[in-house]
Write a protein that binds this DNA or RNA. Structure first.
Lengths: 132, 132
DNA sequence: CTGTATCCCGCAAGATACTG
DNA sequence: CAGTATCTTGCGGGATACAG
């Protein structure tokens, strides 16, 4: 873990006081955004409906919200083609691509999910025993 | 970030269908948890009130909730010392420590936060221009 | 096709007060 | 000290309808 003292951006909310990476977390990991970034990163540019059907359970409203936020943050681009019917293509930016080491670290760690599962079962079992 | 809810995914069908790292994200990055894990990892074991005052803006109720969840997931330990007054010490586990590469990747990426800020200003400026 | 515009709800999170 | 117990609230996210 990095031991450096980092600048804490102003305008951030409470938890940052104790943890310098919280701003990054809150920036990147709002719900659905990893799915969107991951898709664009791995499979290239997508149109609105392509993303919609690929993520499957997201509603158009929420997808629009997330895409706007990601575009505003400079992580994806939105390209409008004035055709009939209109066509809009979303793609990941270099800034968005720079997240790949983060994603790789997360993907690596997913090996530990089974340990988490086991810990949960153990914890719940103990709780059940104490209850009765 | 994170589920932002690491708690039992409510009624919704999870986004991990489109993104394999989403489960990890939802596990680790619920609000406050990075601050807790970061603190325990960097500064060693802490008592309840030590965490409370270190994170400063968290309420005891929420801190308890997060600590329980992290304990259940096997990422931290809770040790009760039956003294007078009672003493409880929280510490990070090996499983929790194994998140270091993830945190390091995130800390590294925080250099890009300034780019995000710039992108936001640019985006907002464009919006303003179009509006009038 | 690519979105808005509304309305609505669950629940994480906050405030406050109290206890073994 | 280390938490519960209760009540309230903000808002992310869902459902539905509709528009350019």
């Amino acid at each position: 873990m990095a031991e450096r003292t980092m600048h804490i951006p102003s305008g951030s909310v409470p938890p940052e006081l104790a943890c310098p990476i919280t701003p990054v977390v809150e920036l990147i990991f709002s719900r659905w955004t990893t799915a969107i970034l991951w898709t664009l990163h791995r499979d290239g540019p997508h149109r609105f409906t392509e993303l919609e059907s690929h993520i499957a359970t997201i509603t158009p409203k929420v997808l629009t919200e997330r895409l706007r936020a990601l575009e505003r943050d400079g992580l994806i681009t939105r390209t409008y083609h004035p055709e009939v019917p209109p066509r809009v293509v979303y793609d990941i930016t270099d800034l968005g691509r720079s997240l790949s080491p983060v994603f790789a670290a997360l993907a690596n760690w997913s090996d530990n999910l089974s340990d988490v599962e086991r810990a949960r079962r153990s914890f719940d079992a103990k709780r059940k025993r104490k209850r009765r």
